[in-house]
Design a protein around this nucleic acid. Sequence first.
DNA 1: GCAGAATGACAAG
DNA 2: TTGTCCTTCTGCG
Length: 295
Amino acid sequence: MPEGHTTHALAWRLNRGYAGSPAAVSSPQGRFAGGAALLDGLMLVDASAWGKHLFVQFEGERWLNVHLGLIGTFSVMPRATRPGGEGIPVPVQGQVRLRLLNEAWVGDLRGPTVCAVVTPEQVGQVQARLGPDPLRPAADPALALRRISLSARPIAELLMDQAVLAGVGNVYRCEVLFRHRVDPFRPGREIRPATWIAIWDDLVALMPLGVAFGQIITMDDQVVDAIQVMAEVADGSAATTSAAVTGARPGDRFERRFYLYRRAGEPCRACGSRVRTQLVAGRNLFWCGRCQRRR
DNA sequence: GCAGAATGACAAG
DNA sequence: TTGTCCTTCTGCG
């Protein structure tokens, strides 16, 4: 689940459900009991994301920093959609590290690698280590290019380095490299600036679709459909679809389908040659040896 | 029932 | 490069 689109969608939902009023904060599992006590009853001021990091500001200069890691999930739902319903206690299922509760919403965090109460200074320190995030309005792709163009490391590795570029994970990197027919093993310094800008612009276009629909969408036919739905919602001609677009039921609108990701051995959708896979720095990389040949 | 994987990141050697 | 942490779900006996 968790690449940058997940974190940004979470920030959006947390703001919608909680911003401006106090939240009951607890740790049903107990492992965040101390931190929860520091936040319990405080007003939630604002939630925001930078790459895969989520920052939730509470009153009194207290911040919650969450990173989902590989397996974390943060379900933030209106209580009316949950068993029990509004006003009735929502049963805890499994290992819930953190629960955010108000009259109308319940948020359950499971399996994060980071869940901590931090100071504004610590928020700044975390953000200072992160590269530009294609989902943040003021993000500067030149900052990433500077590091890429100086590096001998393969571009597939650089795209996953959160200090170079924040928010991209294994799925987006694999798919975006294919979309631009870039050899994943090509050293950063051999990537032409124009190629990098094309990749960046593509991420700026693709990742908001991931935020809106709660799933990673990279295949052109689905991208076209998704943009169409977004446009209809924006001009009000499709009021009924807005719930889906805002992620009320994330992840089930589009068939889960990619160019390469998890398709090892199957035919490339463009040229038919076998999709290749290889463990790179402990993660499965997928690519097409013919379409993404070095030029 | 249990191993293995999974959209991540870090430390140790 | 390997091991470790976090949790849930799948597939295989």
